Simulated assay, not measured.
Amino acid sequence: MNLDSSKPLYLQIAADIKNNILSKKYKPGEKLPIENALSEQYEVSKITIRKAIQKLSDEGFVKKVQGKGTFVTYQKDKLLLNKTSGFKEVLSTKGHSAKNEVIQASFLNADENISDKLSIPMDTKIVYLERLVWEDNEPMALDKIYFENDKFPDFITKLDDNRSFYQILEESYAIKPKNSVLEINGISANSHQADILKCNIGDPLFYINKISYDENNKPIHYSITTIRCDRITYVVFNNDTTTTNEKIKS
């Protein structure tokens, strides 16, 4: 700490802890040292530490949990709804490590709902893929994907935790989505969702139904994705005259 600075000590401490968070010395979800430890580390009173922590809490960098301590919060990433790329591609461009853990890969016969979504006859053989999307070693989304087996033969054998669904489509089948239609709703996490996504029961989640289309406007896949709201902000960028000159800040 710079005792000769006109900047109050609690602001200097808050800035130092913030730098440690941004540099990932303190990682998202990690508990900060207790007040006594921070007081000794910075050689200031616990009152000064409390003011610094409150400053960080007001700015959304930490969250105080009664009886448990102070935890580093997740800094939400902004995703453009207009983009057809997958989570892994988007998160990687924002400096995150990302992987897709395959939970289930099996064959099903299309029911009425799936046949309607994919514009295929009832009982058509489809591939069902369920995967958990990880960001920086923490689960952030559960993805359930349905697509026609005949369009992507041997797809299951090509599954790889280090390759996204869209990477496999492009690299193995030379197919890249042209556009997508998304329907977004909000739900509260039930016990199963809370357990698999490592959140609390009742936490808000995005619930997204998505159909991606190829260049001929034929459905490629239908998916249902459940995403933690504390990890992602979805942004819509319109091309009309009122928003053309606006820029999205990541």
Rank of each mutant, 00 (worst) to 15 (best):
A110G: 12
N137K: 13
I145S: 04
I187Q: 06
D58V: 11
P28V: 06
D136M: 10
S57Y: 09
K125F: 03
Y128C: 03
T243P: 01
S212R: 15
E101F: 01
D4G: 11
S164H: 00
A194N: 04
L79K: 07
L80T: 08
S92F: 07
N149L: 09
G202A: 03
I47V: 15
K178D: 15
L182P: 02
D214M: 01
K64F: 11
Q193T: 08
E170T: 08
G95T: 09
T244V: 13
K176R: 13
Q54W: 08
D203S: 11
E130A: 13
R50T: 04
I248C: 05
D195I: 06
Y166T: 04
I224V: 15
I196G: 03
F61Y: 15
N36G: 06
G60S: 06
S45L: 04
Y10L: 03
I34E: 14
A141G: 05
E170P: 00
K158H: 07
T73Q: 08
L3K: 08
I175R: 13
L132C: 05
K78M: 07
A14K: 00
P219M: 11
R228S: 12
K46R: 15
F61H: 09
N137M: 09
A141M: 05
L9I: 12
T241Q: 15
K125R: 12
N185Q: 14
S85G: 08
G95E: 08
T242R: 13
K144Y: 06
I145R: 05
L159H: 03
E135T: 09
L159P: 02
I145P: 01
G69Q: 04
V72H: 00
S188L: 11
N36H: 06
Y146W: 10
N137S: 14
E170D: 10
I196N: 02
A52Q: 06
T157K: 09
D154V: 07
D154G: 07
N217E: 13
E246I: 15
E112H: 04
I175L: 14
K63A: 14
F87H: 08
H96V: 05
D214F: 01
F155A: 10
Y42H: 10
G60I: 07
I103K: 10
N217G: 07
K46W: 01
I53P: 00
K158T: 02
W134R: 02
K144F: 05
L9F: 15
E130W: 02
C229L: 14
G69L: 07
T157L: 06
V235C: 08
N36R: 09
K63R: 12
F206W: 14
K125M: 09
K78W: 06
K247D: 11
E138V: 11
K24P: 03
R131P: 01
L118Y: 03
L169K: 00
P219C: 12
D161R: 09
K210L: 12
A105M: 04
I47S: 15
Y173T: 11
N109Y: 10
K218M: 13
R50W: 00
H221Q: 03
I220S: 00
P28E: 04
K99W: 11
K158G: 02
D16W: 02
L205N: 06
I208G: 02
S6D: 15
I47W: 00
E40R: 14
Y10G: 00
K210R: 15
L11Q: 14
R163A: 03
T225P: 04
Y207L: 09
N245A: 12
C229P: 01
L142Q: 07
